[in-house]
Amino acid sequence: MTRAQTLPSPASKLVEPHPYPGRLIIVEGIDGSGKSTQIALAQRWLHARGFRTFFTEWNSSLLVKSASRMGKKKDLLTPTTFSLLHATDFADRLYYKIVPALKAGMIVLADRYAYTAFGRDVARGVSPRWVRALYSFAVRPDVALYFRVPVDVSLERIRRGRAKIKYHEAGMDLRLSDDVYESFRLFQGRIIQEYDGMVDEFGLQVIDASREIDDQQQQVRDLLGAALRDTSYA
């Protein structure tokens, strides 16, 4: 019998360094923290320095897209099915995209990682232990950056940028408040609490995301430079 894939015991892989020649760099933070801007700038810099990169984004695999869309539209999703759908998306990207790129020695840049689930899904009400066990197959990142920002700053950025706050982003399904901005504040506030707890638990590196974009980017590049020092240019 082929044993193509033997999963580790729950909560083992995220604490063990991965064996691959590539590097995994991930960014975390609430919506409007500016992490996507920062990872895009980091990718430009890495390219300019001759690294080969692969970029992947939360909730982007085709495998679960239709179910995810239907569930959201029909409001069928519970905190558990919401969490499991994202885990499926994550597993699909991990095994077909992330791990192959790491094996090929590339720099993988991930906009959100398992920690997003640990923050969001727990804020939605699932058990913290359960969701950590669920993602125990995840590869541990080499660099995990947490863009920490007060909820009002991120809310202001979103309002300026695209005016409309998405239903799930505001946690409207939790019925915390009828007012979308108030709901966003409460829901994202819970997520910040979870992230703050993960700083020590998983060794996330905190970036003060209320600073200027270029100041933050300088800090990001310093951290990446240190992590990539012993990596040969691809």
Binding site: L76, T78, T81, L85, Y96
Partner: peptide
Amino acid sequence: LNRVTFTLMYAIDFADRLEN
């Protein structure tokens, strides 16, 4: 599907029926 995503999709089906 790989084994992990396969397992997860069945779990989603199960959770959906359990709760709803």
